[in-house]
Design a protein around this nucleic acid. Structure first.
Length: 584
RNA sequence: GCGCCGAUGGUCUAGCGGCUAUGACUGGGGCCUUCCAAGCCCUAAACCCGGGUUCGAAUCCCGGUUGGCGCACCA
């Protein structure tokens, strides 16, 4: 069993991750989160919210998971999120049709399926595997398609990313943030991609959870006001240049910006923030790197893009977060599609005086003269240069039709106008997180098996393995287990009382009295419960309990009176176990 | 989507044409038990689905589903 299997086996057995629809044989690409998995996921999301929503101030919104066609035409997903596939008639292999003719045609990815088929036929392209004839090209779109409303209702698609919601709501968001850049909005939710063949468990799903932030910034101001917070933070960067050498390098955020390795300060801040988040949820820093997209893999509109990659035992480096400067691509695309200006008005520090040539057609006279064409003629006049307007007879042509306008119908002046600002289409910085992949990585990095030496007192016992999920305390699903040492009523009752007080404090506390105490400790180790509280007969005497620390197996004796506050501080305030009571 | 390999209680597994399917761990109930998977008793729990071959199929064949890997594809 490799590490992946060990983690998945534990996850299945203990209620973290289950294959969906198992009762009916299962379906690839879908996973259920069991009680502990669901709780773990929520804790990760909650930390994400603390950082992005509370600290950074990017308010969370919630948009439908179904989108209408226009949205995904604008985003490019309808046209671009599919691949032209063609299969060999002989051996059945599937190929990207555009890849097959790359060496024949420039820009093969811009061709239609028909053009691809024609090119393949004309050049006698055969199956690269077996040399057989190739079938017709068909589009495989990764979006799930659906119908909105009955009959021939409107076409709908399950969103392949949450991002579009923030773009579509841009004007409302701008208004909410009182038209001041920068501002951002976030969304945590499900996205859907009909993967051709999902594999690797929870690494590639057909329905998955994304956490995305869309941060709208002034394209001319890509500094970050708070950059000093991360100035000395060391990042493991696998830059474009480093990839040529084949090894990543550790450098500070400041260095990366100064050397121009990360495109600009604002993006660098976001990379550092992702680093901060991933380490806080429990990703091992030595198994984390940021890989820069190579020039040829980056979307054409993006300026710079970094992926957070996590090292896993079976799958190697897995991309879990993408951080991109997407420029004004998305807003411009939606502006074109919706015919609505998506911009922010930014006032200059000083109003500028601008010379402007103004043409004023006399509509009172032009109306009767040109009737229905008056408006378009006037528009055409406004576009003419001064020389043309100074002629005795002004000629304009509209839609191939010539119009002659008497000179006295048009006035023009050179005016000085005060301009106090301009409309700017913001650039978008987008950190996009794959929560499911992060959750798996957190589990894998937390997974530990250690050998516990056999007790000398019991002689012939063999050493045994202790499986521990060493979750960060604030991430672990269950915070504390309350255990009566023995299954006796006089111990059970106070134990249940303590559990209930811990719950009042907001701590997820489990109560367990089945089996021996050792067995219960191990059970809790396996699901990553950081602390166990044991009630024994001394508790009845002196009102103290044992607190046991998961990682060190250390035990201290603490008073019942303040046990809820002590546990809270242990879990959320990084209080040390040694300071929680008298060592045993 | 193609190819190769697999699918047996909750988990891991034995069986690979022949009576009521092996074992371990886990789970539940009880006894016992004063701190790290102890012991004893009881108990629950499985042949992925559908066809076929055969007197007889968990076992062989075909198809499907599903998992892993390789190819292809992919944020």
């Amino acid at each position: 069993m490799d590490r992946y299997e060990q983690v998945i086996e534990l996850a299945k057995r203990r209620g973290f991750l289950w294959n969906s629809f198992e009762l009916y044989g299962g379906t690839a690409g879908f996973y259920d989160y069991g009680p502990l998995g669901s709780t773990l996921k929520r804790r990760i999301e909650q930390i994400w919210r603390e950082i992005y929503v509370i600290q950074e101030g990017f308010m969370e919104i919630e948009c439908p998971t179904i989108g209408i066609e226009e949205v995904f035409v604008a985003s490019g997903h309808v046209g671009g999120f599919s691949d032209p596939l063609c299969e060999c008639k002989q051996c059945g292999e599937a190929f990207r049709a555009d890849h097959l003719i790359k060496h024949i045609v420039e820009e093969a990815d811009g061709l239609t399926d028909e053009e691809l088929d024609r090119t393949i036929a004309q050049n006698g392209v055969k199956c690269p595997e077996c040399g057989g004839d190739l079938g017709n090209t068909y589009e495989f779109n990764l979006m799930f398609k659906t119908q909105i409303g009955p009959g021939n209702g409107r076409k709908g698609y399950l969103r392949p990313e949450t991002a579009q919601g923030m773009f579509v709501d841009f004007l409302r968001l701008a208004r909410y943030y009182r038209d001041k850049l920068p501002f951002g909005a976030t969304q945590i939710g499900k996205s859907y991609r009909n993967e051709i063949s999902p594999r690797q468990g929870v690494i590639r799903l057909r329905e998955f959870t994304q956490a995305e932030a869309e941060i709208f910034i002034d394209p001319r101001v890509k500094t970050h006001p708070n950059i000093q917070r991360f100035g000395n933070t060391a990042l493991n960067l696998y830059s474009d240049a480093a990839q040529d050498k084949g090894s990543s390098e550790i450098m500070t955020v400041r260095e990366a910006v100064d050397k121009g390795i990360i495109a600009h300060e604002f993006l660098a801040y976001q990379v550092a923030l992702v680093d901060h988040f991933l380490q806080r949820v429990g990703i091992s820093p030595e198994k984390l790197r940021f890989r820069q997209h190579r020039k040829d893999e980056m979307a054409h509109y993006a300026i710079d893009c970094w992926d957070a990659e996590i090292l896993t035992e079976r799958f190697g480096w897995v991309e879990v977060v993408g951080i991109a400067d997407r420029t004004d691509y998305d807003l411009s695309a939606h502006a074109n599609m919706s015919k609505t200006e998506l911009s922010i008005y930014i006032e200059y520090e000083q109003p500028r005086m601008v010379e402007k040539f103004v043409v004023k057609p006399n509509m009172g006279k032009m109306g009767p003269m040109f009737k229905g064409k008056a408006k378009v003629v006037a528009e055409a006049l406004k576009a003419l240069p001064q020389e043309a307007l100074e002629k005795e007879e002004i000629k304009v042509s509209v839609d191939g039709e010539e119009f002659t306008v008497p000179r006295e119908l048009v006035e023009f002046t050179q005016e000085t106008i005060k301009v106090s600002g301009e409309n700017i289409v913001p650039h978008v910085i987008e950190p996009s997180f794959g929560i499911d992949r992060i959750l798996y990585s957190v589990m894998e990095h937390a997974y530990d098996e250690e050998i516990v030496p056999a007790k000398a007192s019991e002689g012939d016992n063999e050493d045994e393995a202790r499986i521990v999920l060493r979750f960060k305390k604030e991430v672990s699903p269950i915070k504390v287990a309350v255990l009566p040492l023995l299954t006796r009523r006089e111990l059970i009752e106070p134990a249940k009382e303590i559990a209930s007080r811990l719950r009042d404090k907001g701590l997820l506390a489990a109560y367990d009295d089945s089996g021996t105490i050792g067995r219960r400790y191990r059970r809790n180790d396996e699901i990553g419960t950081p602390y166990c509280i044991t009630i024994d007969y001394d508790t009845l005497e002196d009102n103290t309990v044992t607190i046991r620390d998961r990682d060190s197996m250390q035990q201290v004796r603490a008073s019942v009176d303040t046990i809820d506050d002590v546990l809270y501080e242990l879990v959320y305030r990084a209080k040390k176990i040694e300071t929680a009571g008298k060592p045993l």
